[in-house]
Computed example of a mutant assay.
Amino acid sequence: MISTITPLQEAIEQQLVATNQGLPWPELPIDELCIQVLSDMTVLFRRINTPKMASQVINQCYVAISGLLDQIWSTPSLFVHFKAMEKLYFRFELSFSLYLLAGNTPPLYLQQQLSGEVERRLPAICSKLAKKEVPKSYILELQYALKSLFNPCKQPSCNYAHLSYLPQLLNALEEIAHDDRDKAWTERFIFLMIRFNFNYPGFFNRWSEELTDALELLGTVRERQLHLFRIESQLNLSYHSSDLCYNLYQEPLLEQMRLYINVIIEKLEHSPDDITLEEDTALLTRLSGDELNFLFYYFYKAKIFDYPSKREAAKAFSTFIYSKTNRRISYKTLEKFDKAALEASVNKMRRLLTSIIKAIDDDFRT
């Protein structure tokens, strides 16, 4: 089937060469070839024996047709043929959509149209969600996520599935935004994100932080457990469509949330009833606050701490590990990594870690 596109590719290339060299355009029927391509493809498609082979061939053709459409779209001298090429693209999509892969890169002009739709509709949606007291952090992550799809330097990039996913998501968000009833809009917003499998890492991180902060306000382990059980029950009643996904290569948002809840519940099951931490449980060190900050950063980076989020690890570290002045370090300070501020600690910490490695080598040298 891919061979049916070759005459069209050659015709476009010859017209480009003629234009660049200032020669008269060759009389090549590009518009007629666009019509002929699909007709020839349909005939050859009937000869394919297996679905696997059909999928492979169809997606090769999709990439080729999208590339030609991009070429015509970005070349003013060829734009006279854009309508014919666009018609070929949409007829091809209509005929073989069953075999098209969600991760294919769509034509640039469709990406630009989709980006324009997001820019046009999203600000009003976000403004209304803010009035419904949906947390600002959630709204910001929504904005970052949708805009980053069209940034070639970031992943995931806009793919074929997003052509239908994003308009559906915007429609659903608009329904919430324009609903004047008195509802628990933050919860409804979260469950809409679950239903649309909005598995953007930043959104999950903000959700887990909101949950951690809510648990901090509860006084006992039992209260925390009941709160988590309620959320777990809600999650068990939630669902997401397998056809909807922000990031094809990321675990579904619902599964991430369930795992996070289960991890916390399991930890609480092994916690004492009174979780107040006395001063004598703290570990006094000979390190300064900056040196402990340095140590925490690289220990966390090495995945030494068994906590579901960096914030929880920072809170535990802050609670148990004291500096040489017998002071705690703010967990918010530990969450950050101010490289300039920690520059003075580098040499001492390097010597300390080197001495530990040397001691290990001395004790276990074979």
Score class of each variant (00 low, 15 high):
residue 285 T to L: 00
residue 300 Y to D: 11
residue 173 L to Q: 02
residue 348 K to P: 02
residue 59 N to I: 05
residue 352 L to F: 14
residue 81 H to S: 07
residue 310 K to P: 03
residue 199 N to A: 02
residue 270 H to K: 13
residue 208 S to E: 01
residue 69 L to R: 10
residue 149 L to T: 04
residue 164 S to T: 15
residue 93 E to I: 13
residue 21 Q to G: 09
residue 250 Q to S: 14
residue 45 F to R: 02
residue 111 Q to M: 08
residue 170 L to P: 02
residue 168 Q to S: 12
residue 120 R to Q: 12
residue 119 E to L: 14
residue 87 K to Y: 06
residue 240 H to Q: 00
residue 259 L to E: 13
residue 24 P to Q: 06
residue 345 S to R: 04
residue 259 L to F: 15
residue 304 I to C: 12
residue 327 R to G: 09
residue 214 A to L: 05
residue 265 I to M: 12
residue 173 L to N: 02
residue 363 D to S: 15
residue 38 L to N: 01
residue 253 L to I: 01
residue 75 T to Q: 02
residue 307 Y to W: 07
residue 12 I to H: 02
residue 316 A to I: 07
residue 279 E to N: 14
residue 100 L to H: 02
residue 62 Y to F: 09
residue 229 F to D: 07
residue 287 L to P: 01
residue 56 Q to I: 15
residue 269 E to S: 10
residue 193 M to R: 00
residue 327 R to V: 06
residue 337 F to G: 03
residue 245 C to K: 05
residue 157 S to L: 14
residue 237 L to V: 11
residue 6 T to D: 11
residue 268 L to K: 00
residue 267 K to V: 04
residue 124 A to S: 12
residue 92 F to V: 00
residue 354 T to S: 12
residue 352 L to E: 07
residue 48 I to Y: 02
residue 205 N to P: 08
residue 219 G to L: 15
residue 286 R to E: 10
residue 293 N to E: 11
residue 144 Y to H: 15
residue 120 R to L: 08
residue 358 K to L: 13
residue 257 M to S: 05
residue 352 L to P: 01
residue 162 H to E: 02
residue 173 L to E: 01
residue 275 I to F: 09
residue 145 A to Q: 03
residue 169 L to G: 00
residue 303 K to N: 07
residue 297 Y to R: 11
residue 20 N to D: 13
residue 13 E to T: 10
residue 23 L to Y: 01
residue 319 T to H: 12
residue 280 D to N: 15
residue 142 L to C: 03
residue 139 I to W: 02
residue 184 A to M: 11
residue 128 K to F: 05
residue 303 K to V: 04
residue 29 P to K: 06
residue 113 Q to I: 04
residue 267 K to I: 03
residue 333 T to Q: 08
residue 98 L to I: 13
residue 336 K to I: 10
residue 226 L to R: 13
residue 356 I to S: 07
residue 356 I to C: 09
residue 182 D to T: 12
residue 210 E to Y: 03
residue 120 R to C: 07
residue 126 C to Y: 06
residue 57 V to K: 13
residue 330 S to N: 09
residue 216 E to G: 10
residue 222 R to H: 15
residue 365 R to T: 11
residue 283 L to V: 11
residue 8 L to G: 01
residue 312 E to T: 11
residue 70 D to G: 04
residue 145 A to C: 05
residue 188 R to W: 04
residue 147 K to N: 11
residue 166 L to Y: 02
residue 242 S to L: 14
residue 113 Q to C: 03
residue 344 A to P: 08
residue 366 T to H: 12
residue 192 L to A: 04
residue 211 L to P: 02
residue 155 Q to N: 10
residue 100 L to A: 05
residue 219 G to E: 15
residue 93 E to F: 13
residue 188 R to L: 03
residue 278 E to L: 15
residue 102 A to S: 09
